[in-house]
Amino acid sequence: MKSGLNAHTCFSGNDELSDYYAETIEDEDAIPVTLVVEVASLDKNLLLPDINGIEEPIMTIVRGISNCRDEEALYDAWMDSTQDWVASLNLIGSIVYGGTVDPLLIQVLDPNTGDLKPLISIEPEADEISPTP
């Protein structure tokens, strides 16, 4: 995380979608961490539609976002849209960022309090630090 997030990272603008992914991570006996980046801090020219999300939608979530009842309706809505990041966010609740995200822009959501803390202010746990050769 010292270098931030890699280019083509997916972002969700929908709590239900974020919760879905967190639950999936928990199902794998791992601890989910929610990272938050304000869209206003990103270069708008690098905001892209989540094409993978359009092609392989999580319909249980999409139905609540765009009222598309099935993949065919979603595809039709996508084809009738501007097919940009705004349409992607409105239809499936996610976008892709084509650039790297500076770690100074990343915040970590505290699941207990809902507070946001800058990523750079969080010290790793002692058992998470790998020795350097």
Rank of each mutant, 00 (worst) to 15 (best):
K2C: 02
S3W: 03
S3R: 14
T9Q: 08
C10M: 00
S12N: 07
S12E: 00
S12Y: 10
G13C: 10
G13Q: 07
N14R: 13
N14D: 10
D15I: 11
D19Y: 10
D19T: 11
Y20I: 01
E23I: 08
D27R: 15
D27S: 15
D27P: 04
E28D: 14
T34P: 01
T34M: 06
L35A: 11
V37F: 08
V37A: 10
V37N: 11
V39Q: 13
A40G: 08
A40Y: 00
A40C: 08
A40R: 12
S41G: 04
S41T: 14
L46Y: 06
L47I: 09
L47P: 02
L48K: 15
N52M: 07
I58P: 00
M59K: 10
M59V: 06
M59I: 06
T60Y: 04
V62H: 05
V62W: 02
V62Y: 06
V62G: 05
R63N: 04
S66N: 07
C68M: 06
C68D: 01
C68R: 11
C68S: 13
D70P: 06
E71F: 01
E72C: 04
E72K: 15
L74Y: 06
D76Q: 15
D76R: 15
A77F: 14
A77S: 14
W78C: 04
M79G: 00
D80Q: 14
T82G: 02
W85L: 05
V86Q: 03
V86H: 07
A87P: 00
A87M: 01
L89P: 02
L89C: 03
L89E: 04
L89M: 11
N90G: 05
L91K: 02
L91V: 03
S94V: 00
V96L: 04
Y97G: 05
G98H: 03
G99K: 12
G99Q: 06
T100M: 10
V101M: 06
P103T: 02
P103K: 03
L105F: 04
I106C: 08
Q107H: 14
D110N: 15
N112F: 09
T113F: 09
D115L: 12
L116S: 09
L116N: 11
K117L: 13
E123Q: 14
E123I: 07
E125C: 09
E125S: 10
A126S: 08
D127L: 07
D127Q: 10
D127M: 07
E128S: 13
P131M: 13
